[in-house]
Design a protein around this nucleic acid. Structure first.
Lengths: 203, 203
DNA sequence: TGTTAGTTTAACTGATTAATTAAATTTCCT
DNA sequence: AGGAAATTTAATTAATCAGTTAAACTAACA
């Protein structure tokens, strides 16, 4: 059982869980220790400071957050297939990590400079540029309605992410329990794709 | 001028600004005092604790956050006019209070029980039920495509709110300065409305 | 068996911060 | 002017929390 694969990983995983749920400021080191099933001294033995531990967690998650859509966009699939894949991949990801959007957006919000670093590491600009050109080609060829690519991207992201950003609010407003909500998210993929397709289809 | 642009109001307004930007945990009472242009002692003289001050701010904002769409939905306007009004009202609100969505969702996220109280005060369930029935009537009459009302509402909210939730990320990704971003949000109203209309139109 | 890394316990330091208090000062009302 | 409320100053208390340290224990392992 390969001893040492653990502890360090256990700590990072515990930190991930607590940071994601509470955010940086509200997270206590002793919460992380407790979640990891160890004591505070050992926490500092492995990761000297709260900031270092947070950086490790945030770096990882913020990269995971940014979809790797570049390969999809650069493929030679029909445009609607690209969109379908983008939406499906995102929703799948958020289903397995529902706190991810809130966590990342929230920490960027409270420390925007960090975003500069993330953006360069994840080729944000390149992804966005490719998306813009792809959309432009499509509407110039008359295969979709003319639409501002920036606005379209914001709409797609909003459609896929919002339910996870607002999960606690939605559950109460719509009177859903956990399994109702999960089911709604199951069905969401198809709804989202259909909505976007219909919105862009000519005629 | 006197009239009472009273100290009390000044404090609440300062608290609103700081809490909105930093969230509860990261907010310091001395920040609020400084923003209000007073000292910490006076803060406690008016509002004894941080929690009380926060409650006042949050209560107010969470009610403001919830659009008063009930009157729109119950009017006898054509459905698309209702949608247009809903979207316009929401985007207008967020343009003047861009931190509102992040603030409310974030605090609900870190303290979901609070949501129960808000929901009952703002008739969430009634609004949602009315929306559901309105949509159902429309697609049963064949005036719009058949669509799950829950999903549609989530999509509309995502489309209107997401840009404000992700503002710092968007600015970096799309390489926009403040005025670029503001302009994009100006144009967003029409984009959002057109997108939803096209998505729902039959044929 | 003895060494070493990993781990625990428990007490402590130092910094931050919410909250309190008393006394002094200012502002405003009558 | 006199008095009450508002506000400041400055010092203090109490709590929380990140981070440190030393001493002891445990298990692997050579």
């Amino acid at each position: 059982m390969t001893a040492t694969s653990s502890t360090e990983d256990v700590i990072v995983e515990a930190a991930r869980a607590v940071f994601m749920q509470k955010g940086f400021a509200a997270t206590r080191m002793c919460d992380i220790a407790q979640t990891a099933g160890i004591n505070q001294a050992l926490l500092h033995y492995y990761f000297r400071t709260k900031d270092k531990l947070f950086s490790i967690v945030f770096e990882k998650e913020s990269i995971n957050f940014r979809s790797d859509v570049l390969s999809i966009l650069k493929s030679d699939l029909p445009f609607f297939d690209k969109l379908r894949l983008m939406v499906r991949k995102d929703i799948e990801k958020f289903k397995s990590a529902p706190f991810l959007p809130m966590f990342v957006l929230n920490e960027i919000h409270s420390n925007p400079e960090r975003m500069l670093h993330i953006a360069s590491e994840t080729h944000h600009d390149l992804i966005f540029q490719t998306f813009r050109e792809t959309v432009k080609q499509e509407y110039e060829a008359g295969r979709i309605r003319k639409v501002c690519p920036e606005q379209l991207l914001l709409s797609i992201m909003g459609i896929t992410m919002f339910p996870y950003l607002a999960e606690p609010m939605i559950k109460v407003s719509m009177n859903l329990n956990n399994s109702d909500f999960a089911k709604l998210m199951e069905e969401r993929e198809d709804h989202a794709i259909a909505l976007i397709e219909n919105a862009l289809s000519v005629q």
